[in-house]
Design a protein around this nucleic acid. Structure first.
Lengths: 135, 135
DNA sequence: AAAACATATGAATATATGATCATTTGAATA
DNA sequence: TATTCAAATGATCATATATTCATATGTTTT
């Protein structure tokens, strides 16, 4: 069986796909390694989309609040002292990203964190903030 | 010794500070718990700022690349097939957020991840993407 | 010293996005 | 059934931001 380029591209193939020659680069070995090991573009784009959802103070506050208790829209609105509409819009964003789930009890919609990852991400991010400071 | 309100605010005090009365809320106990336990606003804002930096595909690609190797600006530019200027601007954002550090060797500036948190955050975010899918 | 090179930076622009306001949907209750 | 209430949604607007283009800075080499 012969290795195909998609399974194990040669250095030459990698550089070609990047439209560069070896002497355009300071460290072609490092570039090839990164190019070979990095996840596909679409995966990294998805990843950035997830972080983008964490990257808003209103949404982070909602997530932080939900890490202690399930809460309904009205109560989140009161807690954060923001309009019901603003909260509802952001909850939609959080739902789309699978960061929260909701259940309905009559007219009241209760939200909670979707899974354990959410808390983990918040916790590690918090560590970074504590160690490196804000700015 | 008497507890002061700043050390252990009463339920009444918490609700007052939120400008709500108990019957504005579905679950006042849950709201008070969240209000009491949540980190201060400025901490959560800082946290969201960190995630905001992760929340861009170009920056995530840079961070992913740097997780395999230290790389210089030119090589990142070639790897991502983006202009030197665009990369340099984003590296500045990453530096400001303490996600990468740089060293200079002559004219060449090499960048690497600042600390272990960066990789951890990427890894957990990736888990979420894999498990929940992109959209 | 001049030229070449790697990186950084400032201004400008186009796009993305968060909050508001007005309205709608859907469920409980009078 | 009409009303009230919680939540969701659509349109709009103001702000934030990522890239480009032009240029500056600083270093090495000729």
């Amino acid at each position: 069986m012969t290795k195909t380029s998609s399974q194990c591209p040669t250095k030459k193939e990698v550089l070609q796909s990047l439209h560069v020659s070896e002497n355009d680069l300071q460290d072609s070995k490092a570039v090839v390694k990164a190019a070979t090991c990095m996840p596909d573009d679409d995966v990294l784009i998805d990843l950035s989309e997830v972080f983008k959802v964490f990257g808003d103070s209103t949404r982070v506050k909602i997530l932080s609040a939900l890490s202690y208790n399930e809460l309904c829209v009205n109560d989140i609105s009161a807690l954060l002292q923001m309009s019901q509409s603003a909260i509802s819009h952001q909850l939609k964003v959080l739902r789309s990203a699978h960061l929260v789930t909701s259940r309905k009890d009559g007219k009241v919609a209760y939200y909670k964190l979707d899974d354990q990852h959410v808390e983990s991400i918040l916790a590690i991010g918090m560590q970074h903030v504590i160690e490196k400071g804000s700015k």
